[in-house]
Nucleic acid binder design. Structure first.
Length: 200
DNA sequence: CTACCGATTGACT
DNA sequence: GTCAATCGGTAGA
């Protein structure tokens, strides 16, 4: 029950290292007395330099400001009328973030089904916008620090230990530039990973 | 004000 | 597998 919550120091490393390390961790949301949790099974890294797909390209603006803020805070953006949840890394001064693309539902599945208006577990949290809806993550969390006393945080279960080969590295999903970069990390074989099966 | 875009999803063949 | 709906944010007239 009382698993350690990851603190800011965890997120102050290279974004690729953090993206890989987040696989197998537990994402927890508590909102309106409703606790929801899931094991992270898919992430993507967005680099501070040389990454034409990063929202930080071109410098800070009103929309991407959180990417330039402190590590361990949320960066929530809107795309196609939906939300996506990132965790800022390496900052200050190095705008980078990890996109959480999919989790395996663990607790509060009934809340997820209600919020998603969807019964099938495979359709609750397989995709960045789907999991945001299931975890009640919206723009109001943009720039907010993660923590156990907040709306959202990440826990480490010491019983979950993944072998290096359990994590697969692939190209990112849906990115229209810089596609050759291998910046997506997935838990190999997990059925809650999003995207084409060939990249699972 | 209008025009256009997208780190997506869900419906469809 | 393919494809269009979707709408907030941003840029430009």
């Amino acid at each position: 029950m009382a698993h350690d919550a990851l603190d800011a120091a965890f997120f102050q490393h290279d974004v690729r290292r953090v993206a890989r390390a987040l696989i197998g961790k537990t994402l927890v949301s508590r909102w309106n007395q409703q606790r929801v949790s899931g094991m992270i099974v898919e992430t993507e890294a967005y680099l501070p330099r040389g990454d034409s797909a990063s929202h930080a390209l071109g410098g800070p603006n009103r929309k991407n400001a959180s990417m330039f803020g402190p590590a361990g805070h949320a960066y929530v953006y809107t795309i196609h009328a939906r939300h996506c949840f990132n965790i800022v890394t390496q900052n200050p001064g190095i705008p980078s973030a990890v996109l959480i693309r999919a989790v395996e539902p663990l607790g509060g599945i009934g809340w997820m089904q209600t919020r998603r208006n969807q019964e099938k577990r495979e359709l609750l949290t397989t995709g960045p916008a789907r999991l945001c809806e299931a975890f009640a993550i919206g723009r109001q969390l943009d720039g907010v620090r993660l923590g156990r006393r907040r709306h959202i945080w990440i826990e480490h279960d010491p019983d979950i230990r993944l072998a290096a080969k359990a994590i697969r590295k692939t190209e990112r999903i849906g990115v229209t530039s810089a596609q050759r970069l291998q910046l997506r990390f997935v838990l190999r074989g997990n059925r809650f990973v999003s995207g084409p099966r060939s990249l699972g």
